[in-house]
Amino acid sequence: MIIAEQKPLDEIKSMIADYQKVLILGCGTCVTICFAGGEKEVGALASALRMATRLDGQNKEFIEATVQRQCEYEFNEEVADLIEEADVVLSLACGIGVQTMNEQFPNKLTLPGLNTAFLGQPVEQGVWDERCQACGDCVLYLTGGICPIARCSKSLLNGPCGGSQNGKCEVNPEIDCAWQLIYDRLQALDRLDLMMEVKPAKDWSTSRDGGPRKIVREDLRLTFVEEKQS
């Protein structure tokens, strides 16, 4: 799931400084679940912004709405009237939603109210951990199901480095050493052989390093049949 958190109020305030009527638009999927941009957060942010801007002597208007998934045109279309009405949209979706909005409503600027943080797991109520870096070439089958790309501070494929101490990473004692976790898991599975080989340099071209990525499934495209016929 995409994990995000709200931007500091001051940053949001300065983003909307030039606009009078602001639509705060939440998203009902990932960012709802991580308490960053669901209907509840939209309401709380609207409340906070009404107070903050009034304290600054402004008289801004805030409209609140939440769509099911802001990364889809169809859902955003449902609030097209509100978007039309607003001077600017403050999106509480992830960066994908913000861009969808900007693309779908080219005459209206949509601002990001959140910082999209990472792909993670809600490990307990109120705690989210990064789990995947979307490198595009999954190595979990080699590492006991624990991702060293996302979870090792240095993304080592041949860890653990000398900074592993008591199961923690040298970068921050809050971080588990991914390679200690991998070692423990493989040992439990009696598959330590997977750690004995030198893993070669990774092909990063499937990751962000290869440029923006795209997946096309021709078979699923609604234009598929037509194209073949023409």
């Binding site: 041949n158 592993s164 101490q165």
Partner: peptide
């Protein structure tokens, strides 16, 4: 560094590498 038991093997990997 930890895990201690793996350290000699990791050294072997470096030699091999």
């Amino acid at each position: 560094a930890d895990p201690f038991d793996f350290r000699p093997y990791r050294l072997a990997k470096k030699a091999k590498a």
